[in-house]
Design a protein around this nucleic acid. Structure first.
Lengths: 194, 194
DNA sequence: CTTATTATGGAACGGATATTCCAAAACCAT
DNA sequence: ATGGTTTTGGAATATCCGTTCCATAATAAG
């Protein structure tokens, strides 16, 4: 090791992640990544090999967001209320963004996972993190008698996670004024757990 | 009108639709469209003005698929069974495709609707067609006493449609061997209607 | 048949694409 | 300080992008 990196790897990957998040993989050019990171092309390619490598690293970094959601679920209070806060927060955030970037994992599932197995696996990991977090919360709710035990927590968790992914899609085309319709979907989903 | 088109417009738009469906908007090149349609570049651009115009026409043509789903829902039999057949058929088809192309409207919602209002509206139209069909089916189920009337049909329809969109996302990364997990999501979704 | 109009398909366009290369600079270990 | 090694950033490369252009062919109307 004869010379250390001058750039902050976290800062660079954050910039890369933001760019892919906003404009997708195919919609993002190498030039856009250079502009976003303020690095030279050479540095970028020496460190990450290719646009695909850059994308996978950025997606890996995105897992942190899934973990943040799990942490949010673990906060004190009723499990059902935690699930509601999570889902409502996601809808709120998705509708607030002017560019409707949504969720990078969802976007990657749609755009990339059919053609890049590596991306598909990263997306599966990401989905797994949140789904396991939801299952844990549901188990808590079942223990407290707040959520029915007529189905196991894993099954119910995938049902809830599936609804979250649906909301991510619907939020892309739902007008902010129709926010209430998405909230109603959340209500129906959570009511199905009791 | 001094010379008629030599090509079959439906056949050309089908080829264009297939191509965008498989590889997305950004992932599809003008060359790929030329190859798929067997038309010259000039003819293609004279008829459809631009890649965006081509995409919008293809997406318009895709509405027919949504209508097919509605027709499927209208076939005789129990409303709940019709909903199950529709959802199970979608999961089956999505998992069977080796390239995991999924649903063109869903894909377009994710990739395009944030940046192209015209596409967003077409996607909204597409979503509306199926959601209204589902609402109609749910109303039938409510009349037959098969589906609860504690929420209006439109609310329940959006809840079901939301689950369908979730399945479309999950199917992108779900291994064929885990098909049962998606079927369980369908079960939970339909059970919530009773 | 002639004329006006349109379709056709491929060549041509400028600019963008992902990636590679390289000389110069910066650092660490000796 | 010196030698060895790595980073750096920008120039260079060949290819591909979406789009336009145009000579030719084909038709419809007169």
């Amino acid at each position: 090791m004869a010379r250390p990196r001058e750039f902050d790897e976290d800062r660079v990957l954050d910039a890369v992640m933001e760019t892919f998040w906003r404009t997708g993989f195919e919609g993002t050019s190498a030039q856009a990544l250079v502009d976003a990171t303020c690095l030279g092309r050479g540095s970028l390619y020496a460190a990450y090999a290719s646009k695909t490598g850059l994308f996978e690293q950025a997606l890996r970094r995105y897992q942190r967001r899934a973990q943040d959601h799990v942490d949010q679920l673990r906060q004190p209070g009723s499990p059902l209320a935690r699930l509601r806060d999570l889902m409502a927060g996601i809808v709120e955030a998705d509708l607030a963004e002017s560019d409707r970037r949504g969720c990078l994992a969802t976007n990657s599932a749609i755009e990339m996972s059919g053609r890049d197995p590596g991306v598909a696996e990263l997306v599966r990991d990401n989905f797994g993190i949140l789904t396991r977090g939801i299952a844990e919360t549901i188990r808590r709710g079942q223990d407290a008698g707040e959520i029915r035990a007529t189905a196991d927590a894993e099954t119910l968790a995938l049902f809830v996670f599936n609804a979250v992914q649906g909301l991510r899609v619907l939020a892309k085309t739902t007008l902010a004024q129709d926010r209430a319709k998405l909230i109603a979907v959340i209500d129906q989903t959570l009511a199905a757990l009791t």
